[in-house]
Simulated scan of single mutants.
Amino acid sequence: MRRNATQTAPGAEAPEGSAAKSSGPGRILIVDDEANVRAMMGATLEHHRHHVHLASNGREALEMLQQDTFDAVLTDIVMEDGSGLALLERIRAQHPYLPVIMVTAVHDISVAIDAMRRGAFDYLLKPFEREHLVASVHRALEHSHQMLENRSYQENLERIVMARTEMLRQAMQDLEHSYDITLEALGDALDLKDAETEGHSKRVTAYTIALARAMGLTPEEIKTIARGAFLHDIGKMAIPDNILRKPGPLTDPEQEIMREHCTRGYHILRKIPFLRGSAEIVFSHQERFDGTGYPSALRGTEIPVGSRIFAVADTLDAITSDRPYRAAGGFDMARAEILRCSGTQFDPSVVEAFLKIPNELWYELRAEINGQARRYTTADMAAEALARQMADKQ
């Protein structure tokens, strides 16, 4: 037997399994295999203006819960087609916000305790006074209303947190972008001071990033290494111009001063929180894998991985760039020199990753940094081969 109910007020919204927006009239599902009990409870609740649906067993109740929403369920514990406790568990699993009132003629406290442990909202013993039934339903509707408000508050709070988190993330991105613009300005200032290596910082940074990616480093590690590569010579800002721009060979004392650029660069950057990791790379970018570098004569993996990667990228750019005292060499020449110095100047694992990267990538990176929108062609390869032949003859 099923008694149809009137619809809830337009615009009413609720959590899954609940239609209540207030503790006033609610939509109630009554489940009992005794027709007279269903009718009595239904009539009592309708007298208090509640909208009632009736189900004679658990299967029918579950079908109705799938098709409609309710504010509370009253179910008998013992029914011919199965236990009301099983129905309670299904409702709790599928509609966790829906209060369930257990109704039974079994006067056994252990049954009541078991029902409450399984998530029942209340427990009524037959025969019960009608006012007890009405009061229990009223409490269930108050509970449903409170659960709705709490859930709505929680969802609204989560939306606010998500929105503010996104705003913070965007602000951090904007701040980081402004940092990188500042760093680029510093690098450009260094290029202006040391015209011999104009564009070197950008090229060596691009090469370092490509190598770091090939070695499987994380995006955060690559970001730190890239900044260190870009600012590796920042300490030269503190080197006197008569040494930095000297056209001929440096004397031993001048060499010592020039070597201070690693430490000076480190001290410039280390006090900037987001550049602390990069400062370590600036400090150790002149170390050699065999321990013969400076300023600390670090050996092997004592050298930060970013500095070991940078060393290969730096040599790649140095060999393939023009200098006042020599013309630029080709990428094959750089590959041969880097391979020759594997295990002495360079980390063999970095060299291995470098050798797997084709010359085309380095050429295109260099062309992009230099503002040359063209690709590595067969003509370029032929020109490099000719340059190697002429170098061999000399």
Rank of each mutant, 00 (worst) to 15 (best):
residue 390 M to L: 14
residue 366 R to E: 08
residue 285 H to L: 02
residue 365 L to A: 07
residue 311 A to V: 07
residue 252 D to L: 13
residue 329 G to A: 14
residue 40 M to L: 15
residue 219 P to H: 06
residue 208 T to F: 09
residue 211 L to C: 09
residue 162 M to C: 01
residue 197 T to A: 15
residue 87 L to N: 02
residue 323 R to W: 14
residue 191 D to R: 03
residue 351 V to N: 09
residue 55 A to D: 09
residue 374 R to I: 01
residue 47 H to A: 13
residue 212 A to W: 02
residue 59 R to T: 15
residue 76 D to F: 09
residue 48 H to W: 10
residue 179 Y to L: 14
residue 248 G to A: 07
residue 248 G to K: 04
residue 328 A to D: 11
residue 277 G to T: 03
residue 38 R to Y: 04
residue 283 F to Q: 03
residue 344 T to A: 13
residue 336 A to L: 10
residue 7 Q to D: 14
residue 56 S to W: 11
residue 99 P to N: 09
residue 352 E to V: 02
residue 117 R to H: 15
residue 80 E to P: 01
residue 247 P to I: 05
residue 367 A to C: 13
residue 116 M to E: 03
residue 129 E to G: 05
residue 177 H to M: 05
residue 202 K to Y: 13
residue 92 R to Y: 00
residue 157 L to A: 14
residue 76 D to S: 10
residue 262 C to R: 01
residue 127 P to K: 09
residue 68 D to Y: 00
residue 251 T to A: 08
residue 241 D to I: 10
residue 163 A to K: 15
residue 95 H to C: 07
residue 257 I to T: 13
residue 356 K to I: 06
residue 210 A to Q: 12
residue 64 M to V: 05
residue 248 G to D: 10
residue 136 S to F: 00
residue 252 D to W: 06
residue 291 G to P: 01
residue 332 D to A: 11
residue 54 L to R: 08
residue 378 T to D: 13
residue 269 L to Q: 03
residue 231 L to G: 03
residue 343 G to D: 12
residue 242 N to H: 15
residue 149 E to W: 05
residue 335 R to N: 02
residue 69 T to M: 11
residue 36 N to Q: 10
residue 219 P to G: 12
residue 123 Y to W: 08
residue 120 A to I: 11
residue 285 H to W: 04
